[in-house]
Design a protein around this nucleic acid. Sequence first.
DNA 1: CGTGGTCGACTACCATACAAGTGCACCAGC
DNA 2: GCTGGTGCACTTGTATGGTAGTCGACCACG
Lengths: 250, 250
Amino acid sequence: MASKEGLQAARARGGNTRQLVHELLRTQIINLELEPGTALSENDLAAELSVSRTPVRESLILLTDEGLVDVYPQMGTFVARIKFSDIASAQFIREALEMAALREAVTRVTDRDVTDLRALLSAQRDAEGRADTEAFFQLDEEFHARLMAVSGHGDAWRVVGQAKAQLDRARRLSLPLTQQLHLLIRQHTDVVDRLEDRNLKRAEEALRRHLRLVLSDVEKIRARHPELFSEDDVPVRPRRETRRSPAQPR
Amino acid sequence: MASKEGLQAARARGGNTRQLVHELLRTQIINLELEPGTALSENDLAAELSVSRTPVRESLILLTDEGLVDVYPQMGTFVARIKFSDIASAQFIREALEMAALREAVTRVTDRDVTDLRALLSAQRDAEGRADTEAFFQLDEEFHARLMAVSGHGDAWRVVGQAKAQLDRARRLSLPLTQQLHLLIRQHTDVVDRLEDRNLKRAEEALRRHLRLVLSDVEKIRARHPELFSEDDVPVRPRRETRRSPAQPR
DNA sequence: CGTGGTCGACTACCATACAAGTGCACCAGC
DNA sequence: GCTGGTGCACTTGTATGGTAGTCGACCACG
């Protein structure tokens, strides 16, 4: 993913800096290119991206609002550790919204919608064939978004997206589960099948099962990588990293 | 509500300026003290509040993210008009989350919870007696928040709160519905009763009816005050207000 | 009287400067 | 060697410049 160059190019072409920086950091955090606990100095980021502190700072404020970074005034800004309570909360929100949307989708779905969804499924199988997990997750996102659009509440995807960010961040730790992709696709297909049948109960079961599978993934990961999580009661105030060697390579 | 003085005092005592300005503007927008379409100049606000533009600007960015203001670069920042599609979206989100929470609340509710909820109901009747709608809406907020807390997903209230903001803003237009308060309290009581019985189906019906009543209020209001709403397809680019008379009183 | 171009005031965006606070490293004293 | 105090480097928060862009009023011109 283009980081510095891409931003500078986009900046030249137009589009305001704040949004670009925001999206850049957001994707980097979700993809774990920026690990939980990493310090995000406003000055350093500004220098690296060749912009001033202002848009960087404003981006960090937005990310704080999304729960992706923690700001400790006069101490530092850090990529948020994954709090398990946040995961649970995100799962609840996502599940509640997607399930509610599904219930309405069953009554509104058109043949055209089914066709579109199946096209996405096909693309997912394609990505699976190429073992392109990056593309797969992109398509996964599109699939769920489209599902909400079918319900007539596409606007609410924005909220799901924010909750999903927390889940995805944890899920990225388990990327080498390539065989899982097949299962996920089958579950997606299940949902579409039941939707096409207008079978509400079965559709609900299928989607619920799918969403819960994702959660159970996260729980497995937590057992393997406890250092990236923070316990719920102790906020884990990060300490400034001691820099004894002044000459660090870049 | 203290606006300038309160802010300056709080600022002196501590607490960062951005949050204070943010909360101030937020409540003023929701209470319609700042009407939809009003221009919010960074300079003017900064001057009025006796702070610099920075915290004001950062607050406006957050409010933009919440959908309470619209920023048109190089043109101006305006209190967002109430888009009906936003209302529908907010209603969907709120309903989905509160209903999902209720379903879990039925299985977890304790006698202590019921007691607490009934205490809130009592306070609401009190507020009704004093015809103190302001206090009532405060308690209404607490009631619903507590309901979610009972479900074990109190964290999700934050999201509901953002959706609710859109609804409340429209609902404020109908404040003089004093007799309505009684109905609202009865509905609240219904929910608690069914919750105490652990009767899921009845509890769902009661809460759904309650949430839908609020929505229907909004629809009535839209018929009466169309100027505060903006149609869905036309974003209504606001024009800069023509100031021919330079000496406006303050 | 109607119309097109210019100018000025205002906007948000970005950059920079200053202030207040924190923790760590270092060093004096024990 | 160990401990306590002091200064420095670094942090975010706030204030203030500077810039490009947009709109509306005004005026010259037809």
